[in-house]
Simulated assay, not measured.
Amino acid sequence: MDIKQLRYFTAVVAEGGFSGAAAKLHLSQPSLSKAVRTLEDQIGFQLLERTTKRVDLTESGRVFHERALQVLAEMDLFEKEVGEVKIAGSGEVRIGMIESVKNWIPGVLSWYRQEFPDMHVALKEVLTRPDIEHALRNYDVHACLTNEYIEEDDIVSQPLYEEKLVLVMSTAHRFAGLEDIRLAHIADEPFIITGKGFQTRANILQAFEAEGLVPNICSDADRFETILTLVEAGIGISIIPRNYIGGTVPETLAIKELDSASLNRTVYLASMKNRYRPPAIEMLLCRMKAGEPYLTD
């Protein structure tokens, strides 16, 4: 029994028959049928019930098929890892990130560029939890900077730093000159919020709910850049991470801190627990976890 036989067998199951699987595998149907027969002979039991129209798994075949998929998935990851076994000198590190780290990540990468000048760094926006888990498990990225704590058997989350969500409004807004603003003051104001599935949205709604309030949502947007454009235009107000704005606040914006525990959160570094990473990549992740003060005040 070898990997090729397992791929042939699972393809037949996926396609529901030999003809479709043969076409997908670029094999003749007799050759594919013979390969699966050989596999059955080797393991000593029948895997498939064959009819004139399709094939179905036997009871033993279902158990074998489930395990075969696991083995093939592990093999695919192994092949990816083999392709990444490189020491510093050349190679690529891929980091998923949320928008609010844009003023934090340059400090880390400045150091990394000096230490590993031949390493290519690819930054990719990965925003929602399902996207983060998929990107990590599919080896699209080596790690993700996220505002969600992900606790899974195969994924580990390391806290990096704290960030605060703040109220943003146009300087022309009637509340822009107030010093003490509470959620109760803004509950009826037209509110722009991140889209469904984003942790920032959950944080904001939790903050309002904790005070028995419901925001007056007038617009949804997936990117903070879009939200700030709408805020500056006077469309509404919003709450976004303070770190996203950076040290220099645009003259068109007014920023106010709000007293709510739900608007303080942690940024994490999420990565696959048992994934091999070349030393040059591991060094970057260790630097991130060291807690260097890269944040802009």
Rank of each mutant, 00 (worst) to 15 (best):
E151N: 14
E152P: 00
E152R: 14
D153E: 14
D153K: 08
D153I: 05
D154L: 06
D154R: 12
D154F: 02
I155D: 07
V156K: 03
S157N: 06
Q158A: 08
Q158C: 06
Q158D: 13
Q158T: 15
P159A: 02
P159R: 02
P159H: 01
L160E: 06
L160N: 05
Y161L: 13
E163Y: 09
E163N: 07
K164N: 13
L165S: 04
V166R: 03
V166G: 05
V166M: 05
V166S: 04
L167Q: 03
L167R: 03
L167M: 10
V168C: 08
M169H: 09
M169P: 08
M169F: 06
S170W: 02
S170C: 07
T171E: 11
A172H: 13
R174E: 10
A176I: 09
A176C: 04
A176V: 04
G177T: 10
G177M: 03
L178E: 15
L178S: 14
E179T: 11
E179R: 13
D180S: 13
I181H: 08
L183C: 09
A184T: 12
I186C: 03
I186E: 02
I186P: 01
I186K: 06
I186W: 03
A187T: 05
P190Y: 11
F191L: 11
I192C: 03
T194Q: 11
T194C: 10
T194W: 00
K196I: 14
F198Q: 10
R201H: 08
N203C: 14
I204R: 00
L205S: 03
A207W: 01
A207G: 06
E209P: 06
L213T: 12
L213K: 07
V214I: 12
V214F: 09
P215H: 05
P215C: 05
N216M: 12
I217P: 06
D220N: 12
D220E: 15
D222A: 12
R223I: 02
E225M: 09
E225L: 11
I227T: 05
I227G: 02
L228E: 06
T229F: 07
L230K: 15
L230F: 10
L230W: 13
E232F: 02
A233M: 10
G234N: 08
G234M: 12
I235N: 14
I235S: 15
G236K: 05
G236W: 01
G236H: 08
I237K: 07
S238Q: 08
I239E: 00
I239C: 02
I240L: 01
Y244R: 01
G247W: 11
G247A: 15
G247R: 15
G247M: 09
T248E: 15
T248I: 14
V249S: 13
